[in-house]
Design a protein around this nucleic acid. Structure first.
Lengths: 140, 140
DNA sequence: GTTCGTTGTGTTATGCTATAACGTGTGGCA
DNA sequence: TGCCACACGTTATAGCATAACACAACGAAC
């Protein structure tokens, strides 16, 4: 049932690193972690990331210049399966203390943004929602 | 009634450049535009930008690594005046063809994000909402 | 199977974005 | 006067991203 196309060797390596990490990673950090696997240049990382993001398996966090594996890969959303649990726009809550990221989505927000866009005849291609702050564990 | 503190010389210069531009500018582009005014180093721009953003007079567009003047400076929002028209979170619609940016805010979205945060005891510090796409004029 | 286009890959070089570290100058204020 | 806070100036460096070129692997069409 999975619509995941087979990943290439480099894509698999990058995705594995992201999946094993509990915090976002920069492209250069990923590169360092993959030197033993034969990676030598940033482009090898960026090219793999581009594809993973295009497939919806990874996300870029704009406010951090770094990357995470999709937390909802291969999950359907609210009964609809669009491939990789592709649910409208994804939002991120990023703890500035511990670095942990919480990925979620909210149809009400999607609708609201879609409504704004429709009114103005603006055609959305990609939407970024990132909340930076402190998670419960770090507020003490 | 304005709560704007007096801006320093460098802050004024940077804000003027942003205000005159009809599209976001990168820090280095601002630097180039201010060489004749005596600017020599990126830090002069970044320091001014930091203050302007702190005051809410300018915004950073995370997905573009660039900056705009606040479109709502000195305006109150829905009857409430919090200084610089400080209304919850601001969202941006960015046209990837012409570069124009539309700044807006939506209380329903604010409420929704605040609700999510409250449920998880997450304390938001700064929220980024950016829609990239095509504006009406560029869709033809 | 050969030809050809597409896609992934490897490598070098370069450009853009942002901050560290240090020093100077100025104005307010006890 | 002496101190503090803050803006400013400068050099150097760190961190993020892509251009340009070359080669290899694969599949489709003939």
């Amino acid at each position: 049932m999975s619509t995941t196309p087979n990943l290439t060797k480099n894509q698999t390596l990058v995705l594995d690193v992201l999946t094993r990490s509990d915090a976002p990673l920069s492209a250069y950090t990923i590169l360092d972690k993959l030197r033993d696997s034969g990676f030598r240049a940033p482009l090898q990382v960026y090219r793999a990331l581009d594809k993973l993001i295009e497939m919806g398996i990874a996300h870029r966090l704009e406010s951090l210049n770094s990357f995470v594996a999709c937390a909802h890969a291969n999950q359907s959303c609210c009964g609809h399966d669009h491939g990789h649990g592709h649910h409208g726009t994804v939002a991120f809550a990023i703890c500035e203390s511990c670095g942990q990221v919480n990925e979620f989505h909210d149809h009400a927000i999607d609708d609201r943004l879609a409504g704004w866009a429709k009114e103005r005849k603006f055609k959305p291609a990609k939407t970024t929602i990132e909340i930076r702050g402190l998670c419960e564990a770090c507020m003490h």
